[in-house]
Design a protein around this nucleic acid. Structure first.
Lengths: 195, 195
DNA sequence: AAGTTTATTGACCCGTCAATCAACAAAAAA
DNA sequence: TTTTTTGTTGATTGACGGGTCAATAAACTT
């Protein structure tokens, strides 16, 4: 009973199923069969629409990234002042959604993939550049020329804190992460006015 | 021509071969056969000494971690003042050895493994606790009670900077990483004396 | 009605891989 | 010297996984 216009539906179903399965496995050791089954179709169909396993993974990564991007954009377009913009970025970066098991697993494996798969590396560069740009714009009114450097550090700090929070012993707590990064921000802003 | 006392030799050969192969593959998609071949023995022997693939991986991770620990200890035992101790930790953390492809790959896959393999998670916790302890001890004379909090941030920053440097576009540059972290340190120390 | 495009699958092929085992070799112990 | 321990491997196995393909069926076109 093939209905027409199935392609986008199947593709998104596969992408979502892929993220879930990566979360379950904690790695990319996920078979096309598992993904297809969870998405409610045959393995052959998954191959038909994506052409191969790697393409499925990349589509899933793109999806994760676009979700995060949307969250940041959404948070940014509401608030006004530069300081509030920074907080909005932090809030979006450490939102509970980003600490779900599937998302954490996707990110970690994304890093692994970025070593060898050019597509993944490009995607990662896009994410980092966007974060850098957002942070720099928000920082510029506060610290002027020092903005790019601080933004770089801030971006790295966000990644590092995320890593530790996600792999830490207890349940991930976004608030603790935000608090920690805000303390760094306070130090940098203070330095600007003090020196 | 079996000589006696082969076990430690074979085991270290396997561990080193494992790290090399992980670096080559960029992932844990490495067969016992590849590892054994590089180590100059049969797959059966690898199984004989380690009992299974996961045990080989964990041994390799332990090796990476112990190398890093030794590097830090070595750097620490030479210098005197608290500020110099901090720099020593940074220097060891961002030494060229840590940016070799195999080491980067081992770390990234270590993170992935830590999600699901308890042994890997424990190992990671040990590393983080040791770093935290080293940093706190070095920071205490400089900023007193604020030391633990700043150490946590510093640890996260080190991980984050490492990640970006290792996955960045160009060749990894430890000096840039050190410079970035030192800028953060300056801000935090300045804050302490300024407020 | 005949032909084309889209959707879909079960079955299959080919390769790979972790793990096992039987067997052999040399040194050490008895 | 016989036995046991240690070292070592080739061959095998059992399972699995990615990818292909032929075949089927519904919808759309002419």
């Amino acid at each position: 009973m093939p209905k027409l216009g199935m392609e986008p539906i199947r593709k998104t179903a596969l992408v979502k199923a892929t993220i879930v399965e990566i979360g379950r496995a904690g790695s990319l050791d996920v078979t096309v069969g598992q993904i297809a089954k969870r998405a409610g179709m045959s393995t052959a169909l998954a191959h038909h629409y994506f052409g191969g396993k790697e393409a499925i993974f990349l589509a899933a990564m793109r999806h994760i990234l676009s979700l995060y991007g949307a969250e940041v954009r959404g948070a940014l377009c509401v608030v006004g002042g530069p300081r509030a913009r920074l907080d909005a970025i932090l809030l979006a970066s450490f939102s509970p959604a980003n600490f779900r098991r599937e998302v954490v697993s996707a990110w970690l494996n994304f890093y692994v993939l970025a070593q060898t798969v050019p597509g993944a590396r490009r995607l990662l560069a896009v994410y980092q550049a966007r974060l850098q740009s957002n942070l720099t714009h928000a920082l510029r009114p506060l610290i002027g020329a020092r903005a790019p450097g601080v933004a770089a550090a801030l971006g790295a700090l966000i990644d590092g804190v995320y890593l530790r929070e996600a792999l830490g012993p207890g349940a991930a707590d976004g608030r603790a992460a935000i608090y920690l990064v805000q303390a760094y921000l306070a130090a940098e802003l203070n330095k600007g006015s003090g020196a």
